Amino acid sequence: MVIWGFNVIATKLLVTSFMPVTMTALRIFTAGVGVFIILFYLRLIRMPSKKEFLYILICSLFNVVGHHYFLSVGLKGTSASNGGLILGMGPILTTILAIFFLKNKVTLLRFCGVIFGFIGISFIVFQSGEGLQLISLGDIHVFLSIFLQTISFIMIKKVSSTLDPRLMTGYMLIIGSVFLFIISVIVEPNGFQSMASGSSTVWIIFFASAFLATSVGHMTYNYAIGKVGAAESAIFINLNPFFALVGAALFLDEMITFTQVIGFIFIIFGVVLGAGGLEELLRHQKSKREMIISK
């Protein structure tokens, strides 16, 4: 989450230096190559079955193409701090989808968490105080990016029993980058020319974003989903907007507003309640009390 939070800042810098879709396609492809280098040393590379490949293809469209396309375009039209906070809705959305597709139980605390999360996001996107008509298009694009990614998290959990999520990540990144390259040629005909104008500092940020945030970050997170579940691992995404806010203040000199802080607090409460963190703590304390009484 530290890496992903600061990667929002890195992506904001990259989309202001290069054309966003072309840059994203090249960054994702570079990340995919990085994943397969790691998988080669871990001896995890194999060909997927037809069923596994179908899941890989669908997850590529949601997790890579949709998520990264809308994120790169969205950060062009909103602040890095806003983008990071909206991405913090991931656990809430994952919990909602897990209820429908993984048959997770709906409890009062989780329902309250969903409500808190949406209140928090409302504080962020309506912070101008001028109503729905002035919601930033960039905010909407960033929200679409995290929504599409959460759909893929559910699918990753479904296929993780037969396919190592780290290997799935590598295939997803390579396949997704091909689709993004095709989109970039259509929407950004001069995209590759823009890549030639980057400074050495920008290219260092590019490779750090590709290898650390996308290669290592996605491999680690998708592996965690396969081990502990989509909703459970999503608890930790609440740290993502915190590090994005800190990074935006440190590196981009963005002002953190009182409204954003209030929105962030609501999102944190929403994540802790909605993703089941508080329920798990209460269950643990109850079981400890029962053990003490039984002794």
Rank of each mutant, 00 (worst) to 15 (best):
L250V: 06
Y69R: 06
N63L: 13
P20R: 09
N82V: 12
V142Y: 06
I154C: 12
F147R: 07
V187R: 06
M168P: 01
K103H: 12
M168S: 15
A275H: 01
F264G: 08
L54R: 12
F153M: 14
K76G: 14
M23K: 03
F70C: 15
I205L: 13
S215A: 14
I225E: 06
L132M: 12
V35G: 06
F243A: 11
S122V: 11
S194Y: 02
L167E: 04
G83T: 01
T201D: 11
L26G: 03
L167D: 05
I235A: 09
V261M: 13
L108H: 05
I58R: 08
G113T: 02
L57H: 07
L54D: 04
L13E: 10
V216N: 02
V202W: 00
N63G: 05
V142T: 05
E232C: 05
S161R: 01
G276R: 09
I235M: 12
G129T: 05
G217R: 08
V185Q: 12
K157E: 15
V106H: 03
T214G: 04
S72Y: 03
G84V: 01
I205W: 06
E290Q: 14
I186K: 13
G198S: 11
I9F: 03
G32L: 11
A244T: 00
T150K: 04
V178F: 15
I28D: 02
I140C: 09
F181D: 02
L245M: 15
L180A: 10
M291H: 11
G113A: 10
L137Q: 13
G74L: 03
S17D: 10
G90Q: 12
A98Q: 03
L245C: 15
F242H: 01
R166T: 05
S72P: 01
F242M: 13
E130I: 03
I174A: 11
L167N: 06
I174L: 15
A234I: 00
D139R: 07
T22V: 00
M168Q: 14
K105C: 01
R27G: 09
T24A: 13
F123E: 11
F29V: 00
D139T: 02
I174S: 10
H68L: 11
L85G: 03
V185A: 15
K288Q: 11
T95V: 01
I225M: 09
E279N: 14
P165E: 03
T201S: 15
F153N: 13
G270Y: 02
I56H: 06
F143T: 01
T169L: 13
F116N: 04
A275I: 00
V159M: 09
E232S: 14
L42N: 05
N190P: 01
I156N: 08
I267T: 02
E290N: 11
E280Q: 12
S215P: 00
L180I: 04
A31S: 13
L26N: 08
A231I: 01
H67C: 15
A244L: 08
L93E: 02
R289L: 13
V114R: 09
I225W: 05
L61N: 08
I121R: 02
V142A: 10
Y69M: 09
K105W: 02
A80W: 03
T162G: 06
S194K: 07
S200K: 05
G90M: 14
F192C: 08
L57Y: 07
F6V: 06
P165D: 04
M47S: 12
V216Q: 01
T259L: 09
S233Q: 08
A196S: 14
K12T: 05
N82A: 15
G113K: 05
I56V: 08
S184T: 00
I265G: 08
